[in-house]
């Protein structure tokens, strides 16, 4: 079979709508279940617990009763062009795939030096401080899927945009003699699981895909955009305070997106009412 050169053709990414996100955590559970992520008895040690997809709880910091919280689901950002983690890896165990834009991780090659973790500002990379915990005597190894290999201790793992789902979709497409996969044929486990449909996944390079349209919206932003990591995970929020928390700003640097909503009433504390 002739190997196609898709160099730079696809660029998979996602848009997470923070307004829709309910903070339920299904994405985190779906991710862990899909990717055979180890579950240890103490998961409260957030510095060492593995959560490829992680929810951050943010607050507008205002006093009662004007307090508002929100959640930022944070998968791996799959930074484009020059991800901070890829160039630093000593053993070439992590790479940016130019055909898909996915930043991969090869567990069997990783030596566990953790330089990539130090380089990643999103905390998206997780080290296996312990051996995978799926006790046989409990039978917990029975729900493991063969599509994703469980990791040994001492290596770094991270969100792969459910790369095995991409492979699955590709296999199906090739079996049907197609070269391209459709928008809904390849979505990540978190996208699929979100009960509020807050996550949209697709090819950012394909103008027919919903994500390509969504990223043009003025409410769409990325995390730490100024640092230049070029994440392929975008966020969307109508709330200024949420957008402002996505990056660091010097006083006066943040320009609110002007929005007129119905809530522009005197007693509202909601979108468009935050002064920055």
């Amino acid at each position: 079979m002739k190997k196609e050169n898709d160099h730079g053709k696809h660029k998979y990414g996602m848009v997470i709508d923070i307004d829709k996100c309910t903070g339920c955590g299904t994405c985190m559970v779906a991710c862990a279940a899909e990717n055979n992520v180890s579950v240890r008895a103490d998961q409260s040690d957030k510095e060492r617990t593995i959560t490829w997809m992680r929810l951050y709880k943010i607050s507008n910091g205002k006093p009662f009763p004007h307090t508002e919280i929100s959640y930022i689901p944070r998968p791996c950002m799959h930074c484009d062009h020059h991800p901070p983690c890829v160039s630093v890896c000593v053993a070439t165990a992590t790479k940016l795939d130019f055909n898909t834009g996915i930043v991969s991780q090869i567990y069997t090659r990783c030596i566990g030096c953790r330089y990539c973790q130090a380089a990643c500002p999103y905390g998206a990379r997780y080290f296996n401080w312990w051996d995978a915990y799926f006790p046989k005597k409990k039978g917990l190894d029975r729900y493991l899927t063969p599509e994703v290999s469980p990791r040994m201790r001492g290596v770094v793992e991270k969100c792969t945009f459910c790369h095995h789902r991409f492979m699955r979709a590709k296999t199906v497409a090739y079996a049907e003699d197609r070269r391209e996969i459709e928008e809904d044929e390849y979505i990540t486990a978190c996208t699929e699981a979100c009960p509020a449909q807050a996550i949209t996944f697709g090819d950012l390079n394909n103008p027919d895909h919903e994500v390509a349209r969504l990223i043009k919206h003025p409410f769409t932003f990325r995390l730490l955009e100024r640092i230049g990591t070029e994440p392929k995970v975008y966020y969307h929020s109508s709330r200024d305070w949420v957008r402002k928390l996505a990056d660091n700003f010097l006083p006066g640097e943040y320009t609110p997106v002007v929005n007129q909503t119905w809530a522009e009433e005197e007693w509202s504390t909601k979108p468009g009412r935050d002064e920055f």
């Binding site: 955590g25 559970v29 862990a32 998961q43 617990t49 929810l55």
Partner: peptide, 9 residues
């Protein structure tokens, strides 16, 4: 047990 991953510290 998965749910404990989603519980904040």
């Amino acid at each position: 047990p998965f749910l404990y991953k989603t519980i904040f510290e």
